[in-house]
Amino acid sequence: MQNTLAMQLEAGKSVLHANVDGLSHEESLTAPEPGGNNLNWVVGHLVSAYNSLLPAIGGEPVWSKDQAAPYARGSEPVTSESAATFGDLMTDFETAHGRVLERLAAVSAEDLTAPAPYSPTKNPNETVGSLAGLTAFHQAYHVGQTGLLRRVCGRSGAIK
């Protein structure tokens, strides 16, 4: 299971890099009118999701709760006042991604069957393994959005 999740997360990382290639911090704040989350929020949200998963698989979060709050599920779109620098977000994404892969390689099959400390979908039967699987889906889902948000920044699609 861990290998499957790791390969999906690696695929997402690779495509994320392509979708944000060459984009500036200012471009990352371009709002998809009439509303919705900008690229800065989506990348921060990817970090936030890893940040939540890490303690469940024995890893250390990259962000404090305060750092993660602007990018948590259901939060308002970030603005130039509330947003982290886009370059810092990508660096934090790399760190969090690396920690998640490291922990996925280290956890046992038994660890994955343990009850999860939380469930984003309020699933009473959520295990660490199902939570990790849901996170892999979540990351792919939002990386897909970065492909469209790149166009909002006036750039052509990176994935043909």
Binding site: N3, T4, M7, Q8, E10, A11, G12, V15, P32, G36, A136, F137, A140, Y141, H142, V143, G144, Q145, G147, L148, L149
Partner: peptide, 26 residues
């Protein structure tokens, strides 16, 4: 992806459709 078996193909294609469903979401 490195896994060139049927398992690898299924792994990648499940990721691929999640990527596009995220686009449908937005």
């Amino acid at each position: 992806i490195p896994d060139r078996t049927l398992r690898g193909r299924l792994t990648f294609m499940a990721w691929h459709e999640s990527y596009h469903i995220g686009q449908i979401g937005i």
